[in-house]
Nucleic acid binder design. Structure first.
Lengths: 243, 243
DNA sequence: TCAAAAGTGTTCCGAATACACCCATGC
DNA sequence: GCATGGGTGTATTCGGAACACTTTTGA
């Protein structure tokens, strides 16, 4: 399929243009102990050997972009079976010392406790790092991360988030804390509860917290049907919809 | 900068991976005579010669992605000085007959009347086409267009739209029609007016319509400062924001 | 009995909705 | 005058925001 009889307008065979590298970088958010986390590797190979970096690698020539993201993440961290979503592509000229590499950013949300990463490939170590400590990353990964965080904040406003990050059973305070962590602000407790209970999203369980030095909180789980329905449909709109 | 002493983990020099083509495709929305339009070229070269297609071409190896989109659009259509925004990257394996080409989608909104496109390069013709007639495009451009329309609908909900599409002076009915065209639904006139006037977005002019067989409508223009402020800040949020 | 966090209720206000109605123009 | 679309006012409902209050636990 790489035949070169197609000519571009200045009579250069198309193949002459085919000297790009293509990579994928994965921004994997987790949540544990009330902290928003990020999955980072320490690079065991040049360039940027020893630096923290997003899990990412070059795409193979016969591999679809989405498949590549899944493969690379599994290969570097052992993490598998998660939903990776493309969010932005980074294409400045000098982002990689080995040549012209354009990188496609993918992001995902997972329960970090369920995914103990195992370093392999050229990853020296892999760890869940607090968001605030994810700085001075390799390549332009600081920029990629910043864009991923913007995307996450936007998503939180328009679709439900939490099922992917929280354990099976959780308290309303934990859910509220998660939202506060992501958006970097505080909410009024009574109003948060009312709003979240207003949509039919949570299923109250017959269980409560144990061994806490205060009134134990009720546990909830997500109503999966309603959750995925709202994922698709979204949470609100600016303009009324008559029809 | 394309030295090959960096080795990937299986000892293949990085350069061996550098066989991707990279392209840019532009989805340019316009608006004229109450119709949402799309800028399409008829391809004058293989592959897909004679088919309608989004303006797009291969990126040069030493050219940043955003710059490339601007250059390619200008080269094919003569259109210049517009804001192009990246929205999604398309990376399935078989989208281009000449080899593995990954394409980055860009989109923009313009006043079609201000941009009379002139075909050049391998574009045989360039025209503003009604959205509904943009079908069976070359390559996977149907899919790219579908994603661009989704993006546009999402944008309309979260930031002001219209300054880029409407003429300098316009009526409230025209603005409402634009929103209805984009979202594919009808709004209540009094409520639309109240909502749009509630934000300090429009400047009423001392002019009215002429030669219409009914009460002439007042003309408005956009308040540019407030418009760009709301572009950045957004229009609403689901959760309250306490500091 | 006290601290700490869970959980509830109530009031206020502004925005969204659904209408009914009036106004200016060309024919 | 009348058809046509422009433009306004209002009553009602709903949801967000603010905040006071009660409840349950461990120590």
């Amino acid at each position: 399929m790489t035949e070169n009889y197609f000519l571009s307008e200045n009579n250069i065979p198309y193949r002459e243009f085919f000297h790009f590298g293509l990579s994928v970088d994965c921004v994997i958010f987790g949540y544990q102990n009330g902290q928003l986390k990020l999955l980072l590797i320490k690079r065991g190979a040049d360039p940027f050997k020893g630096r923290l970096a997003l899990p990412g690698d070059l795409v193979s020539i016969d591999e679809a972009l989405d498949d590549s993201a899944t493969r690379i993440l599994k290969h570097l961290t052992g993490i598998d079976n998660i939903f990776l979503e493309q969010f932005q592509t980074f294409g400045s000229v000098v982002r990689h010392p080995a040549g012209r590499v354009v990188s496609v950013g993918y992001f995902s949300l997972v329960k970090s406790e369920n995914y103990l990463p195992i370093a392999s490939g050229w990853a020296e170590t892999v760890d869940w790092v607090n968001i605030s400590e994810a700085q001075e990353l390799a390549f332009d990964h600081d920029e990629i991360l910043a864009e991923a965080i913007k995307t996450l904040k936007r998503k939180v406003q328009t679709e439900p988030v939490g099922f992917e990050l929280l354990p099976e059973k959780f308290t309303l305070a934990e859910l509220q804390n998660l939202y506060e962590q992501i958006l970097g602000s505080k909410f009024d407790k009574p109003n948060f509860r009312k709003k979240i209970m207003g949509i039919n999203l949570l299923t109250p369980l017959e269980e409560i917290q144990e061994n806490v030095a205060h009134r134990p909180a009720k546990l909830y789980s997500f109503n999966k049907e309603e959750y995925s329905r709202l994922k698709k449909k979204g949470l609100g709109s600016i303009f009324q919809n008559i029809e």
